[in-house]
Nucleic acid binder design. Structure first.
Lengths: 222, 222
DNA sequence: CATCGCCTGACACCTTCGTATGATCACGCA
DNA sequence: TGCGTGATCATACGAAGGTGTCAGGCGATG
């Protein structure tokens, strides 16, 4: 598995990844800082894996665990900001904490606007980094939990036939069976059958349930 | 009306504030920059009002129009960051664009984490400021539109009696009338009456409608 | 005290929903 | 060609939803 293992689209999440022990991924070219950070994290019981360049990270095989990315801005080859953009384009949601020794305000603002969780200047206090990492891991956990839910919904929705999906669409709009039948040009009886299939396949115990699930799907899709 | 006019809780929005012409509020102690900014904005057809200190702003009477705040970080008395915190505590959602001549990275990160939309360093390019303002106004408009919707829902929900609200709660959970009746210790007939009142008062054409409105309310409240 | 709003309940009637049974037709796949 | 799946429809029955009418009790308010 490559770093794409952290790019979790709906349906990709294996069993309860959000509950696993977190992993902090470090990308920093200065070996001293890199190992210092690793030691710091291990001292508080956090697993950490470190790379010296973005290329190393991208080539590496990462487990699908909750965690975050601690990224130096200035790196050989692809910069930290470029990596942030690249990961975002790949669909990754892994929280990113930047650190830099020679940054400026526009750089930090750009990173924050692109979704970075924090932007620390070297030298930073150990506690500041640990605080940021704690927040980042918690956010990733929350996202994974939520994502697992919508992924499960998407899995259920994928079992619907085209017609059933169409009927569901109309049901959650609040239309009556006879109205749906007229809209689709079929009989009300057939609508009832499709509707029953939808409720069973989507594991919805009521129309209210179905509406909520349909809304959650709509939000996660677009 | 004070600056609290920009603190728009549900139910506070007058008719279609989101559609009004935007107003940019500037707080900057340097008179040259302040007037330069005002001229810049007026040159592109934007209304602007400027203050020399946060105290002046807080004492002023501001119309309830879409817009944004352009804020110097270093100000006499309360600083820009303090004002940001104060406004947030007051419930304001007015987008804030910071500008500074002597800022540092931690300051910019703090502002961005607190929800600032942008953080420009002086001297900035006119176009950068205009771009930021455009984005900010658009975001404020979107928020106002959304806010007006939930405010209307809250207004409808406020007309419900305690019992009706209770019944609605159970209905959107997907319970049957007989289950609601049992849960509340009343007869199914009475539940039907309350339910009918709920549908009428909430202007819901269907259970699906009601569920969506209840969800929107829940999100806006919690 | 009278009135009003709210909560409560019953009876009746119709609509809508949900499902079971049974059946036909089309399409793709082995 | 046979089989499975999906889509279609009919009949029928029971469960649930929705509305209207009538009515009693209860607390607040003028």
């Amino acid at each position: 598995m490559t770093v794409a293992g952290n790019i979790r689209g709906p349906g990709a999440s294996p069993p309860a990844a959000a509950a696993m022990a977190p992993l902090v991924v470090i990308v920093e070219d200065d070996e001293g800082i890199r190992e210092g950070l690793q030691d710091l994290l291990r001292s508080v019981g956090l697993d950490a894996i470190a790379f010296g360049s973005t290329a190393d990270l991208l080539a590496a095989s990462l487990p699908d665990r909750p965690g975050c990315l601690v990224l130096d801005v200035r790196l050989p080859g692809t910069s930290g900001l470029d990596l942030q953009a690249k990961l975002a384009a790949m669909g990754s949601r892994l929280p990113i904490i930047f650190m830099t020794g020679h940054g400026d305000i526009p750089m930090s603002v750009r990173a924050m606007k692109a979704g970075a969780l924090d932007f620390l200047t070297k030298p930073f206090r150990d506690q500041d980094m640990l605080d940021a990492i704690t927040v980042a891991i918690e956010r990733d956990r929350a996202w994974r939990t939520e994502s697992a839910g919508t992924a499960e919904l998407a899995r259920l929705a994928a079992t619907l036939t085209a017609r059933e999906a169409e009927v569901m669409q109309h049901v959650v709009q609040g239309l009556l069976n006879k109205q749906i039948a007229h809209a689709l040009g079929i009989s009300e009886i057939t609508v009832k059958i499709h509707r029953g299939n939808v409720m069973r396949k989507m594991q919805a115990g009521s129309v209210a349930d179905l509406v909520r699930k349909a809304e959650a799907l709509k939000v996660s899709e677009g």
